[in-house]
Computed example of a mutant assay.
Amino acid sequence: MSRESIKEAAVKLFNRHGYEGTKMVQIAEEAGIRKQSLAYHFSSKKDLLKELYREIVEEEIEFVRGYFGEDKAASWEGHLYGFLVEHKNRFLTSPNVHLMFVLSFTTPVEVHDFVIAEYRRYLTVLKEELTALFTGAKVGTFPPEECMVTFMTMLDGLDVQLVYETRQAYEQTLAIVWKVFLAGIGHSVNGQ
């Protein structure tokens, strides 16, 4: 049994039962191994989550850098709107991404400082990429940093829809806040 298989089993169970609701014996059973074999790879659930969460955050950082680093023919509006759609799709289809965002909202006490520090690494990269996009696009009437903060606040509200509500709630909210976002930064609402 590989460490990757154990981590896949852990993600599945953490998503289903939460971190606190998942026991090491359950992870071992899901992975098809004995608890003693699991202990050979990971001495505790906390160690398992820390390795797993760090890898997931790194994957999402790579996604963000890749997404914003692509030379897309789309306008800056299309690029940002596409990110919001892809962000939703990744949450809904990737168990890893789902776990990352849920844990950022409902952080277990035992790993609170670690999860928050890792999630902030992700947020820092996302903010840098957004600021660069707004700087290059010379958007609206506000400085790029203020446009980035506004976008991040909108994204945070949309994430609440994904974590606590439904895909449909996300899409309905997106339709509203996207128009308000464009108008708010001094851009035509007739774009995407």
Rank of each mutant, 00 (worst) to 15 (best):
T131N: 13
R54E: 14
E146Y: 09
Y122M: 05
E129S: 09
E146Q: 10
K127M: 09
Y81E: 11
T131S: 10
E51H: 05
A132Y: 06
T141S: 12
L48F: 07
H112R: 13
A137H: 02
P144A: 06
R54I: 09
E118V: 07
R54K: 13
L80N: 03
H79N: 09
E60S: 11
Y67G: 03
E128P: 00
L126W: 06
E70H: 08
L133H: 04
K50M: 14
T106M: 12
S94C: 06
E110W: 07
K46E: 15
D113Q: 09
M100A: 15
T93R: 15
T135V: 07
S94T: 07
R90V: 07
K88H: 14
F83V: 10
F134L: 02
V57F: 01
E58G: 05
R120F: 13
H112M: 11
Y81C: 03
R120P: 01
A117S: 15
L80M: 11
T135M: 08
E86P: 01
E86R: 13
R121W: 12
H87V: 03
F142K: 04
F91P: 02
Y81A: 10
V109T: 11
V57N: 02
T93A: 15
A137E: 04
P95Y: 03
L49F: 08
F134Q: 00
L133C: 06
T107F: 00
K138H: 14
E146F: 10
L80Y: 00
T124R: 11
E146C: 02
L133V: 14
A74V: 14
V109M: 12
E128N: 13
F105E: 09
K50I: 12
E86I: 12
E128A: 14
V85L: 15
F83Q: 06
Y119Q: 01
E51R: 10
I61N: 05
S104Y: 07
H87G: 01
V109F: 12
K138G: 11
I61V: 15
G66A: 10
Y53D: 08
F68C: 05
T141N: 12
E86D: 15
E59I: 06
L99E: 05
E59T: 09
K138W: 03
V57L: 06
S75M: 12
F105M: 11
G136M: 02
Y53K: 09
I61T: 07
V102R: 14
K88S: 12
K45Q: 07
E146L: 11
E145Q: 13
L48T: 04
T124C: 02
L126P: 00
L48G: 01
L48D: 00
L48A: 03
E128H: 08
K72H: 10
T131M: 06
